[in-house]
Structure formats: C-alpha cells, structure tokens
Amino acid sequence: MSFVRMGIVGIGNMGSAHAKYLIQNEVPEAQLTAVCDTNPEKREWIRSQSGDSVQFFDTPESLFESGSVDAVMIATPHYSHSELAIKAFRRGLHVLVEKPAGVYTKQVREMNEVAAQSGKVFGIMFNQRTNPLYQKLRDLISSGELGDLKRTIWIITNWYRPQSYYNSGGWRATWAGEGGGVLANQDPHQLDLWQWTTNMLPKRLRAFCGFGKYHDIEVEDDVTAYVEYENGATGLFVTSTGEAPGTNRFEISGDRGKVVIEDGKLTFWRLRISERQFNKEYNGGFGQPECWKCDVPVRGVETGHKGITENWVSAILHGTPLLAPGEEGIRGLQLSNAMHLSAWLDNWVEIPLDEELYLEKLNEKIEASTFVKKSQCAKILDVRGTF
C-alpha cells in the first residue's frame, strides 16, 4: 500500500474532528474513504465536507464488509468500543479506538486477545502521549535520573462541568449510558499517563468516590484514591468535575529529587547525591542533600490526535513502533475499575482486580440506572460485553 484507506465509525464530536483533518489531507499517507453513523444528518455533513469522495454507511458491519477501507477508527460510545473493534479485526482491518478502551477490563481483555490473533495494527487515541512534557518525564524516570520512585501525586481537578453539561443528554453521567463519571469520561488520559510515565501499576488501592456529590448525576464527580506500589512507593490521585478554579499538578518524588509538571512547565529539583546515600553518610544533626532547581528543556511540539493517527498509519505502512499501542488501554482502565470497586465495597482492592466481581457490581448499577429503558439498554446489560 502507498496509503491507508480509512473509515470512521461514529461521527460525533471526536469522529467529526478526525474526519476534518483526514479530509483536509493533514495525514499524508491516509485517505478517508468511508464513514458510518446512525444519524442521517451526518451524511449531509460529510458530503458538505468531502463531496462524493467518502462513502457513507448506516451500520458498522456494512462498512467493515464493504472492501472500501484497510483500517478503521472507532469513535462511538464507550460500551461499544471493544465489540466493534473485535468485529473489525475479524474482518481483517487495522483498528484505532478512541479512549477509553472500554468500560470494564473483561471486555477489553477479549479485544486485546482478538487483536493479537489478527496480526493487525492496533492503536488507541492516547493523544496526550504526544505531549513533550510527559515524554520528558518518562525519559527522566526510565533513565534513572530520578532514582527509585517514592511518591506520585496527581491533582487533576480542572475538569469543571456545570449541571447543564450533564443535562445535555439522557445518557450522560449514567452507569448505563457511559459506565462512569469523571474517571471514565474526563480522566482516561491522566490515568494512562500516570502509569505510562512511571512504568508502574499499583499493587493495591483504596478509593473514596463522591457519586453525584456536586451534581444531580448517578456516577462519580469527585474521587480521592491512595495507591501502594510493589517497590514501597505510594501515590495519590485526586480528581473532580465540581471544583472551580481547578488544579492540574503532577508531582513525582524519587531518591534523587522531585519533578513537578504544572502550568505547562516541567521543573526538576535534583539532589546532588541520592537521599538514601545522604541519610547513610551524614553525621550532623539537621541537614539535607544539596538540591538544584533545574528548568529542564523540553523540546518538540504536541501533535495530539493527528499525531497519534499519523503514527498508527506509519505503523501500518512502515512498521513504525506505536506510541500508543491499543493493548495498553487496559492499564489505565484497570485503575478506574479498581477505584470504582474500592468505593463500592468500601475496602482495599488488589490489582489486578477481580474482573468478575467488578462486572457483577457494574451490572447492579446499570440495572438501577435512570437511563435504563428496555428498548434502549437491553443489550448493555449483557454481561458478555456485547453491544
């Protein structure tokens, strides 16, 4: 192939954004050839953007079987990501899924297994991985510059949403419609970056969630989670859609100093010798290691959604390593699932979490959801994860 023929399933906010840059040929080695949506108004919108160069399909299956695409982007509601990706893989198509990978890890694990069996290129739209700040942080940690990690703290409360946002659709902020609140909708990028930059998942966590604490909704809009890692490090994740003004501050402490990302800047407080070495050798009373405040140069430009798409297309055509492999979507989802389960059980949760127990508790929430109507949501309740 000299270029990849691409399809998009779901022309909502994100699907239409992807369609625009593809139609404008901003990904040189890709061509948008087909889209799918159940809304007939989207057909006219696509025609207004592309003329007759893009085919329109009413069902994902008809698009997958059309022979008009080599690869598809899945930009549909959360519950359907895994099922549609599985169908696409089984039709021999490469797949890029929007975040989150799914709603619960059991369905995502099945998607990962089918993806591996297919031999196709599988990516996920973790566009924040293109941010040079987080790439530099990952480099500092993986190179050993920060030493052994001691603590991670991410306060991400600048997700403020008014009640009118939640009122804009009956599916919003419901267990049946979205499968969660701030963790499932706003935080998938941060949950991914938390584990991606540190290359660590906690061994267990204890979470406290406020369900409808600041809004008239049934899912979480306020979360505080404490985690413990295998190496003895601890962490804290605080998030909310009910605080204004909010904060976005990521702090990581290690044996050789501390890194803070805030206000678009990375600052490294670097110890001249490691804290453990100083603690062992220092013979005075009060004292601490010499510390240098370093404004670390961060080079590069965040390429966002388009950058992830370009990388995925290059992986298909040239074997370029993926910046955001689809299989890794389960890692951040495991964190959000574990936080939900911990709050529901009012107890600690080990990681990997009990997937069957989580699904049992989620289905209890779905059955009681205000969005459940037999004509709309019967398929969501299928514990096999199909939609």
Rank of each mutant, 00 (worst) to 15 (best):
E262A: 11
K106N: 08
R161S: 03
P188M: 00
G67I: 12
Q190S: 15
N231G: 13
D221K: 03
G284C: 14
N231D: 14
L341A: 02
L236H: 11
F3K: 04
E275H: 12
S336G: 09
I155M: 03
G15H: 08
V95I: 08
W348F: 06
I217M: 06
I8F: 03
G284V: 07
D263K: 11
H189L: 07
T59F: 04
E98A: 09
H215Q: 10
G169Q: 02
T386Q: 05
K306H: 13
Q128W: 13
R5P: 11
P60L: 09
R256G: 06
A176V: 04
T59G: 10
G257C: 11
E310C: 15
V27M: 03
Y229V: 05
Q277E: 13
M339L: 00
K365I: 05
K136P: 13
R5K: 15
C209V: 05
K374S: 10
K258S: 10
D221Y: 00
H81G: 01
A315R: 15
K87I: 08
F64M: 08
E83Q: 14
D58H: 02
G147A: 09
K361T: 03
W312C: 13
G285N: 10
N337F: 03
V114K: 08
V4Y: 07
G235Y: 12
R161H: 01
A115C: 02
G7C: 09
E98D: 14
C291H: 12
G147V: 11
E262F: 07
C294Y: 15
V238D: 05
W348Q: 02
M125P: 07
K365T: 05
N279M: 12
R299H: 04
L362E: 09
L96H: 13
D216S: 07
I74F: 00
C209M: 14
G67H: 10
E41S: 06
E29T: 14
E83A: 07
P60C: 04
V108H: 00
A88F: 14
L357W: 02
V219Y: 02
R331E: 01
V54Y: 11
V227K: 00
I217L: 12
V182A: 00
V69A: 10
H94N: 14
V223R: 02
I23E: 00
R90N: 13
Q107I: 09
P297V: 08
C36V: 14
S48I: 09
E281T: 02
T76K: 07
S375C: 14
A176E: 01
H81Y: 11
V95D: 12
E113R: 15
I46P: 07
Q288T: 04
R206I: 00
D139V: 12
P297D: 10
A85E: 01
Y160R: 09
Q376N: 11
V223T: 07
Q31R: 15
